[in-house]
Design a protein around this nucleic acid. Structure first.
Lengths: 238, 238
DNA sequence: CGGAAATTTGAGACGAATCAATAGCTGTGG
DNA sequence: CCACAGCTATTGATTCGTCTCAAATTTCCG
């Protein structure tokens, strides 16, 4: 239900967002509008793509959240990155691209295949920018896992997600819809869900965040970012 | 001294390796041979590229080791990935590409600018394959940091580096040149150098590795990979 | 409304960090 | 060729952060 959209075609929020990222020309907009017609829903927990499988085409996520995950044999799970509504992923210039990670729907989602980059230079650029952001997110994730404390990891992740949701026009001035369980946050931050819980409580007690019914609110996002040193902003030493 | 090469032009090991990766056509080989003539040495500890700076062209690392690093304000450091001799990085389809990480020479190195992808389809494919491997390495790094124990992280990293050195034709059947200090390994694995030291001693005492004068030898690489579940091989659960 | 999933809380164990001090190595210059 | 300086590696004692196990409570969904 909440993954349904009334808007179709060129008016779709995901397209509007892409168009803001890079100026999209006529052919690009047309191709995207066409692609959106091919939207398809998937239920939460569904695997959209399995590691080692051939990947069809890049994907535009129209609504819902997706995670790229890696599973170890003994059941340990690591979330590599999140894909947020309106984002574009899976751009491959490769010959016979095999997926290097499994994609799992965290919520009910609606996706559509993204049109080929060959449609227009503008579209190709949009893909390039998307790819660059994707890589930046991976690098942030590495730093988070390697060098931040539990509290820092959670705050940093939340701030990143907040920023990306804002970029997608899906956040209010100080809050956003966060459809993640603490278990999922744990798999993303390399912690246990028990410890994630304790850190979230701590943040609540300290008056840093409010969180209920899937909505995350920052009492003072800027201050929090400053206190914890949000790594996406202040990266280079000195 | 040890960063000097006698071979030049198309005979260069780095080019031979690329040519094995993807079949390279005439124009690609010629362009590479030309590029290698522009080789330049850099001293260890030198920053090759600073985060936020415009990146000139993709880089071919002819010899020596480079690390992509991220520094936090308080001095914490995370190594995002290693670039090994013979590897190619920095492929950007982007309009005005800004570096998202700092590159530091870990040893004396020799680099050359890689020729533009437009030279030939074969070269473009080679870049695409390089990029895909680079991403796979980042994903492996995330999993390592998020879900492996200290011992596992170190073993997994060593096995990855061993595999990549073999791919570059720079490893013997069971050992390779590893010019990293324990501090560097610590910054790559998200541990302290003290703990890295303890884990390496443990591995030595257990007869898993031998390590002296910068050479790392595996007593039984396959067995070790199996025991710690080298995440690059056995990734998908089940 | 009922059952499953998610969150919350506590006690205790364990892994890795920290602090501190010693020993070994490497290159450099006298 | 030796001695010194400055990294690098090693070791021990202790602290701290996070995990583990377990149980109770709440929330969500059909």
């Amino acid at each position: 239900m909440n993954t349904r959209f009334k808007l179709m075609g060129a008016d779709h929020p995901a397209i509007r967002r892409l168009a803001e990222l890079v100026h999209l020309d006529e052919p690009a907009m047309a191709a995207l509008a066409m692609a959106v017609r091919n939207h398809r829903p998937e239920r939460a927990r569904r695997e959209l793509l399995r590691e080692g499988t051939a990947v069809a085409s890049p994907l535009l996520l129209l609504s819902g959240w997706v995670a790229r995950v890696r599973l170890l044999e003994d059941g340990r799970r690591q979330i590599l990155s999140f894909i947020l509504p309106g984002e574009l992923v899976g751009h491959c210039t490769q010959p016979r691209p095999l997926a290097v990670s499994t994609w799992t729907a965290l919520t009910n989602v609606v996706t559509c295949p993204a049109p080929p980059a060959s449609v227009s230079d503008a579209l190709e650029q949009a893909y390039a920018v998307s790819a660059a952001r994707e890589e930046a997110n991976l690098l942030a994730q590495i730093t988070r896992l390697g060098r931040l404390s539990a509290e820092e990891r959670i705050v940093d992740l939340l701030l990143e997600l907040f920023g990306r949701m804002r970029a997608a026009g899906l956040a209010s001035v100080d809050s956003f819809e966060l459809p993640l369980t603490q278990e999922v946050m744990a798999d993303a931050t390399g912690l246990t869900s028990v410890h994630v819980n304790r850190m979230l409580q701590l943040l609540r007690r300290n008056g840093d965040i409010r969180w209920s019914r899937g909505r995350m609110q920052f009492v003072d996002a800027a201050g929090l970012a400053n206190r914890v040193g949000y790594i996406n902003r202040q990266v280079v030493g000195g």
